[in-house]
Amino acid sequence: MAADLAEDDVLRLGAMPAHADALCVFVHGRGQSPEEMGEHVIERLRNTGAHVVLPRAPGGVWYDARAIDPLTERTTVQLQAGLDAIDAAISLAVSEGAPGDRVVLAGFSQGACLALEYALRRPGRLRGLVAFTGCRVGGASRVATAARLAGLSAYLSCGDADPWIPLDAFFEAAQDVARTGAALRVEVFPGRMHEVLDAEIEALDRMLADVAAGRPASGARRGAAA
């Protein structure tokens, strides 16, 4: 997959791949760009030891529908392309020396939805999952998963006033992750709109530090949604 990914398709930040203590792939939201996520999220991290790859969606959109809309053939095709882009981003960085056994996948909004789908549909490459304001794609028609993710640490967050991701859809996603046996931490922020708070940035910082050190994520509860 790495050969199919051009440098223009990704933004690289943080440590050089061969010197990184962890690999983070961060997926932007609808209508956003890797550069925006670099400024609003990655540059706020204290942890500078990770190599960060931010893939770029064609036209700034991973799929056209809302995440809570029923799955259609078009959404399914677009979703698969997004999952392939994550695979390619991981493979590209690992081919250049980034640690393939210490991968954290993170995202915001539509990027968080895509990250959740990747973790549940393509298990095995991740040690950490961080989803800021996301849910499963497809609403009630979402794809069921029997994945077992006992080695995965996951952090899911949302605001109770977010205009894009309903809380019930967010909690359904958390329950899906909890059923896999992942070590899960969930936070809901009262009054938080469509943004990423300092507390969420700190959670990603801790996740990267824990994965780099080979220890379970701080504050995670295995197999239970808080």
Rank of each mutant, 00 (worst) to 15 (best):
M1H: 14
D8H: 03
V10Y: 01
L11G: 07
L11M: 15
R12Q: 13
P17V: 04
P17Y: 04
H19E: 13
H19P: 13
D21H: 06
D21E: 14
D21Q: 14
A22W: 00
L23E: 00
C24D: 08
V27K: 00
G29V: 11
G29E: 02
G31L: 06
G31V: 07
M37P: 11
M37A: 13
G38R: 05
E39T: 09
I42N: 02
I42Y: 01
E43H: 02
R46Q: 14
N47T: 13
V52H: 00
L54E: 00
R56M: 10
A57I: 08
A57V: 08
G59D: 07
G60F: 09
G60N: 09
V61M: 08
W62Y: 03
Y63T: 05
D64Q: 12
A67Y: 02
I68W: 12
D69Q: 11
T72V: 08
E73H: 04
E73Y: 02
R74G: 13
R74P: 07
T75V: 13
T75I: 05
T75Y: 02
T76P: 13
T76F: 11
Q78H: 09
A81F: 13
A81I: 14
G82Y: 06
L83E: 02
D84P: 11
D87L: 04
I90P: 01
I90D: 00
S91H: 11
A93T: 10
S95M: 11
P99W: 01
A106W: 01
S109A: 08
G111H: 01
A112S: 12
L114C: 09
A119W: 00
L129D: 00
A131M: 05
F132L: 07
G134Y: 03
R136K: 10
G138Y: 07
G139I: 13
R142V: 08
V143F: 03
T145K: 02
A147Q: 01
A147K: 03
A147Y: 03
R148M: 07
L152Q: 02
S153N: 15
A154G: 08
A154H: 01
L156Y: 03
G159W: 01
D162T: 09
D162V: 05
P163G: 11
P163D: 03
D168W: 14
A169G: 05
Q175E: 10
V177I: 15
R179K: 13
R179P: 04
G181L: 05
A183H: 05
V188M: 11
V188P: 11
F189L: 09
F189W: 09
E195W: 14
E195S: 15
A199Y: 09
E200Q: 12
E200Y: 13
E202A: 10
E202N: 08
L208P: 06
A209T: 07
A213D: 09
G214S: 10
G214D: 07
R215A: 11
R215V: 15
S218W: 08
G219E: 03
R221L: 14
R221F: 05
R222D: 04
R222F: 14
G223I: 11
A224C: 10
